[in-house]
Amino acid sequence: MSSKTIAIASDHGGVELKAQLAKALADWGWGVLDLGTDGPASVDYPDYAAKVAEALKAGKAARAVLLCGTGIGISIAANRFRHLRAALVHDAFGARMCRQHNDANVLVMGGRTIGPEVARDCLKIFLETEFEGGRHAGRVAKFSE
């Protein structure tokens, strides 16, 4: 697995925030696997969730970021894949808890619902926070049953 690479993808509703977060990742020394989309033309968010699922399964990235307008649709699409634990977050606390308690491997945010500064904070916390394990490990294991 590429432990220093983060996959990132969005539909048209998250494309601007995706570009900002990809730049932040690169500035922080992470490799960025940009899986699209790259413009404002309408696209289907489930296709981008599938691209991230494929990249994580193939070991091309350690974790991922997904974005759509609200984050809701793409998080639903992502969680259809058993090996993804996609967490829609809106703030730093959610970003921390999704890692500590849920071992989330995909951070989801809404390009139209979160500002770039908060999104960068969430991403940084998501990358720096470890899974606690312990009492949470058994619960997380049930996600893939």
Rank of each mutant, 00 (worst) to 15 (best):
S10G: 11
H12F: 11
H12W: 08
G13E: 03
G14K: 06
V15M: 08
E16N: 13
L17Y: 02
K18I: 03
K18L: 01
Q20S: 13
Q20W: 13
L21V: 02
A22E: 00
K23L: 14
K23F: 06
K23R: 04
L25A: 07
L25G: 10
A26N: 12
D27F: 01
W28R: 13
W28V: 03
G29V: 10
W30T: 10
G31E: 02
V32Q: 06
L33C: 14
D34E: 13
D34F: 01
L35W: 06
T37W: 03
D38S: 15
G39N: 14
A41Y: 11
S42L: 09
V43E: 08
Y45T: 02
D47R: 08
A50I: 02
K51T: 00
K51S: 07
K51Y: 01
V52T: 00
E54P: 01
A55C: 13
A58I: 05
A58G: 08
G59H: 05
K60H: 13
A61T: 06
A61N: 03
A61C: 09
A62N: 14
A62H: 14
A62W: 05
R63V: 04
L66N: 03
C68Q: 11
C68V: 12
G69F: 10
G69N: 13
T70V: 11
T70S: 15
G71L: 09
I72A: 15
I74F: 11
I74K: 08
I74N: 08
I74M: 10
S75K: 06
I76P: 00
A77N: 09
A77V: 09
N79G: 05
N79M: 06
F81Y: 15
L84Q: 01
R85L: 08
L88N: 07
V89R: 01
V89C: 08
F93W: 11
A95F: 00
A95Q: 07
C98G: 05
R99Y: 11
Q100I: 02
H101W: 02
H101N: 12
H101F: 04
N102W: 07
A104L: 10
L107Y: 03
L107Q: 10
V108G: 03
V108I: 11
V108T: 12
G110N: 02
I114E: 02
E117W: 05
V118F: 08
R120Q: 13
D121C: 15
D121E: 15
C122V: 03
L123C: 12
F126I: 04
L127N: 00
L127Q: 07
T129P: 10
T129A: 14
E130A: 15
E130Q: 14
F131T: 03
E132M: 12
G133W: 07
G134K: 11
R135P: 07
R135Y: 03
H136T: 05
G138F: 01
G138Y: 07
R139G: 04
V140F: 01
A141D: 12
K142D: 09
F143W: 12
S144K: 15
